[in-house]
């Protein structure tokens, strides 16, 4: 009789704990989801970087998959964005150092005219390829919100790091070091 009672008590505890646990987990997950809803990071560190194909100012297509085996420093920018303009010369200098070590810089302009991008490139004497995302489809695929945003892609094609905001030359150097092939 007592044993039966204990068993019943135990079952009750398990049942109640299970129900409460499931409900609390559901609430926790919902709150977590709503808290991160503003910056829906469809992309996360460790994800495979979505492939894309964009044309540069000379009309040459650049596919992300073309750079497999190299580290790709993918920088999203616009001429109106001041921090973007500030970090560009530093990126160019570090690209000079790391391009022979298998690091590729790709600057993705957000839907501006060829003229604006070309004059910007000429003004700063940039040597890395600049592609223009005319329909914002790559920006949408990568879920880029603030500019500048830099996506660091390792030689395996996986996202190593996502940087939003301006980077110092030290940062840039460190990031290139991170994605440099062995």
């Amino acid at each position: 009789m007592n044993e039966k009672k204990n068993k019943k008590k135990q079952n009750r505890l398990i049942m109640r704990s299970a129900i409460l646990l499931v409900l609390i987990a559901a609430i926790g997950y919902t709150i977590y989801n709503s808290a991160t809803a503003d910056d829906v990071t469809v992309l996360e560190v460790g994800d495979k970087a979505p492939d894309f194909a964009l044309a540069d100012l000379e009309g040459n297509d650049h596919k992300l998959s073309d750079y497999k085996g190299q580290g790709v420093f993918l920088n999203f920018w616009g001429t109106w964005c001041k921090p973007c303009a500030k970090e560009m010369p530093a990126m160019d200098r570090q690209f000079d150092v790391y391009k022979d070590q298998g690091v590729q810089v790709l600057a993705v302009n957000i839907a501006q005219s060829d003229f604006e991008v070309q004059s910007f490139s000429d003004q700063y004497g940039l040597s890395f390829p600049i592609v223009i995302d005319k329909t914002k489809s790559v920006m949408t695929a990568y879920n880029i919100r603030p500019l500048p945003t830099t996506v660091l892609i390792n030689p395996e094609g996986e996202i190593e790091r996502i940087v939003t905001g301006e980077m110092t030359e030290e940062d840039i150097k460190g990031f290139m070091e991170e994605i440099k092939p062995e």
Binding site: I19, L20, L23, I24, I27, T30, I31, S34, A35, A37
Partner: peptide
């Protein structure tokens, strides 16, 4: 309506509904 405490209140109400009904 997307603040964590509002969602928490709705969640607590859901727990209350289920537990009280059972």
């Amino acid at each position: 309506y997307s603040s964590f405490w509002f969602i928490l209140l709705v969640g607590l109400l859901a727990i209350s509904l289920i537990v009280a009904s059972l």
